[in-house]
Design a protein around this nucleic acid. Structure first.
Lengths: 166, 166
DNA sequence: CCAAGATGCTTGAAGTCTCAAGCATGCAGT
DNA sequence: ACTGCATGCTTGAGACTTCAAGCATCTTGG
């Protein structure tokens, strides 16, 4: 249960850090819960699935390799497999063999999937805006984004495309 | 699928907002994943459960009413019920009838639970620090915390203790 | 005191996610 | 061409969460 690094007394969080950390944990809990509920109610899908549809809609020809999509959405391939399986049942997404790599699969956004996304987007954006951006000044938005970017960058495997460094 | 409010074209996110939003989504995904993995590996529990043990350890006499605990941790009562059931099996928490309200239950942190928490805390704090606080300036920590607090406040039912207003 | 509704918590089923394992294909070195 | 390992993706089982429903206890108004 202990790694060598843990045996030394760690640097605990300062009071300020503790407060910010608790604020983050609460915000992220409430936010995920809020958006999941909103999307489940209005579109019958969890927030992550919505994100997947969005990524696909942004992609050229509305299709992406599974691994690529998983990385873009920051989820595991396994999770994506299950998610696509589910959305395939709903007819929102279709699998397609990859021409150049017989192991590969493309996830393709269907017309039905696109329509669902278009119908759902306004309500979802409103929810996000109401929960966040209508409450923050442009400066705060920027600061919040900067912090998030730094955190995200720190957590991406140093060279996600340089696996031999890991 | 549409509520009246959705029929008007919504205010889409500006480019800056969109960027901050994507940064947040990615950061929160990566972070939850990272901490869940760390705690699962080192202590056999998901991040939420760790949070519950922490709240209990902070409470007077190491015990809290179920509803109180659920609200503190920003999770549903149902989720808490399942979580406590699981941790009760592990012997980390014990249920106790509430003296003044026969419907009520207290969740009580056991000695074993406290020990698990103490053993786990250093590694977890280090993970949090490495992922976040060692990467942000004190000013950024403050700004990040402020934004999170605003978001969290906006999502708590206006008067969580004033249900008749909802 | 009683009925009716509110509150506190739990339950089971269905949905989702994780983890480890597995299959098929690609690729590098010989 | 062949072996051995890497890569791309899927699968099933078990863990966790959600949702709706349920039971028991309080509380309020008559």
């Amino acid at each position: 249960m202990k790694t060598p690094a843990d045996t030394d007394e760690p640097r605990w969080l300062t009071e300020d850090e503790q407060r910010s950390w608790q604020a983050y944990v609460q915000a992220s809990m409430l936010l995920e819960d809020h958006l999941d509920r909103q999307l489940q109610r209005d579109a019958g899908m969890p927030h992550v699935y919505y994100g997947l549809l969005v990524k696909l809609s942004w992609a050229p020809r509305h299709r992406m390799r599974m691994t690529e999509l998983a990385e873009a959405a920051k989820i595991t391939r396994s999770r994506l497999s299950h998610a696509v399986a589910r959305m395939e049942k709903d007819g929102w997404v279709r699998r397609e063999d990859c021409p150049d790599d017989k192991r590969g699969q493309n996830a393709v956004l269907t017309d039905k999937g696109l329509k669902v996304l278009q119908d759902t987007a306004p309500g979802h954006v409103t929810a996000v805006r109401t929960a966040i951006f209508d409450r923050l000044t442009p400066e705060q938005v920027e600061q919040f984004g900067t912090a998030c970017r730094i955190i995200a960058d720190g957590l991406q495997p140093a060279g996600a495309d340089l696996p031999w460094l890991r």
